[in-house]
Design a protein around this nucleic acid. Sequence first.
DNA 1: CTTTTGACCATTATTTAAAAATAGTCAAAC
DNA 2: GTTTGACTATTTTTAAATAATGGTCAAAAG
Lengths: 201, 201
Amino acid sequence: MLDDKRNQIIAAALRRFSHFGIVKTSMSEIAEDIKLSKANLYYYFQDKFALIEAIAYQIMDESDVAIKQALDEIPNTLDTLVRMLDIKKEYLEKYYMLIINLQEMNMNEERWIALSKKMFQREMDTISKIFERGIKRNELVTFDVSSTSELYVALMRGLAMFCDHTIPHALVDRDELDKIIEKQKQAAAIFINGIKKSTNS
Amino acid sequence: MLDDKRNQIIAAALRRFSHFGIVKTSMSEIAEDIKLSKANLYYYFQDKFALIEAIAYQIMDESDVAIKQALDEIPNTLDTLVRMLDIKKEYLEKYYMLIINLQEMNMNEERWIALSKKMFQREMDTISKIFERGIKRNELVTFDVSSTSELYVALMRGLAMFCDHTIPHALVDRDELDKIIEKQKQAAAIFINGIKKSTNS
DNA sequence: CTTTTGACCATTATTTAAAAATAGTCAAAC
DNA sequence: GTTTGACTATTTTTAAATAATGGTCAAAAG
């Protein structure tokens, strides 16, 4: 079955990408891993980007499921965001090199920018949902959900990038992950407090 | 006078650094600009770093004066922070290349890291003062000023780095400066609201 | 004693050309 | 519908040669 082969390829690529990164993984290597010729791989995926894109979407879908579950289980807005940060951490650890690479790719090529924007958009949509629920639950004040969730996501990403006070250097240091998450949680708490309906201090 | 020559050198270096950047400016060029031999320049500054450091401190001091003035004129915390962002924007525009370069320098060398940390520290100290005043004025709740101002500065810097939703790429795009400041102001508003004493929504 | 300089060196950047690797194609076979 | 070996065009790596730059120093000038 066509789909099965595609998934096999995706799995092999995912393994290499998340370990060695996108650039350091060649299409031949991926093909060899599952005993295919490179030409055959290109029968299933138009080009390298298409393969990467498929993987990116798969990861996004996968983590969306986990987050949707959290949304059902946790009513409180802040707790949900905190949970979300933990989930994101899991994924970052699991697919480290891949995710890092995805973020700092040939950002002068249309398709890469489009993918990057899509990923940001998906994250924004999730946050929007959480915010909207918070408003409905009368936990948060009314505000422009779109621009605020955009700000929130940018904030969290920026915080990740600017881990210690020295180098920004796009790639998140693996060892500093815990520290980053901690800061993000602290920021989330203040942020939510800043858009919460006041109930006395 | 020794100090006069030093200032002359600093002025010349500042001109070149803020225009062409640190790396693309050679010590010979700076010397030539003010009709000195390179060897003579080294009589006044131990090495290139010492010169850069002197400039960095000068800029920090200069902007500190402007900010201190804002602190005297504006009582409200958020307004003060907004003013601060405007001041920072001015400086960033004025010394663009220099400041950008300063942030992404050989960050594996001790002295650079130290300078970078110092700059962060200075920014943190200013924010701390603003926060402390806000607490004293009974405008803000009581909180750990140190860790919170650290978070605030990191937040703002990260936001600057993560301008549009695509490339993080350490250097702030000059054209996007207005957009960035806008976002920073929005973030500052929510942040302050998040640590403000509630007065009813 | 302070300031200035030309000549000098070591190390780092830049350039260039050749070699190797890689993305992607295609006609033909299975 | 799948699979492949053989092929190209384009990037990446590599390595060597060259140029530029940071930094030193002994000696001269003021």
